[in-house]
Amino acid sequence: MAENKWGMIVDIDKCIGCQACVVACQSENNIPINEEGHFNQRRAIEWIRIERYWEGEFPNVRARFVPVFCQQCDDAPCEPVCPVYATYHNSEGLNVQVYNRCIGTRFCANNCPYQARFFNFWEPEWPESLKNQLNPDVTVRSRGIMEKCTFCIQRIRRSTREAAKDGQEVEDGDRGMSPACVNACPTHALTFGNLDDSDSAISKQSKEELKQPAGSRPGGRGYHMLEHLGTHPNVVYLKKVDKTAEEHEVHG
């Protein structure tokens, strides 16, 4: 089996903050309904969320959007603190949460600089008829369990299996394999693929965009979120372009 290292590119310059990814994720991954009270207690669960940052104020005001989700860090701060190895790094570069191991200490969430992990404070509940919508490929997490973005691993598993059935390997850019958020995104701000496959669009693009400026050649727009923490994320963000802004210093 070929080596896979799943990664994502998020182009902030394309993201418009429309929430399509958020709802697509909730539908695909059986995320409990975020009721009003859950928001009020700051306990809503959104594996992918759109953060909004203000700059300036009226009339020269700007709001910038950025989708934040589990960065599948290669050196993930959440992993070493789990007392029961419920979270670990697998061979495909994914930061995995094993629900049946989790005992709910919430150490991992507290140690995650991206705040991408969510705790089930309540038993998830749906009215009987809404349960018909639940995705049978994804475990319904019960109360007391940590959960987070999985890069829709159920889709990766399904397409790898279906490709293997025909004696092939999954193709990069296969819509069946792409996470729900990527397929939904109207502006194509999200790109998903195999970073280890040197022919894949995502590995080429991330290499190109992560280039540092050298001489007269400008650098790419790529950066890792909170890079200075040394988490080595597998998600590359592409900078927002704003001709009126000053270049923020980017150095390693």
């Binding site: 902030i12 306990r43 940052y53 991206y114 979120m225 200075h228 963000y237 923020h248």
Partner: peptide, 20 residues
């Protein structure tokens, strides 16, 4: 809902460039 991630003046969550 989530506490703001640790950041410093040099490192913004959203980085911005004037260059296309």
């Amino acid at each position: 809902t989530v506490t703001e991630p640790p950041r410093d003046d040099e490192r913004l969550i959203i980085e911005i460039t004037p260059l296309d």
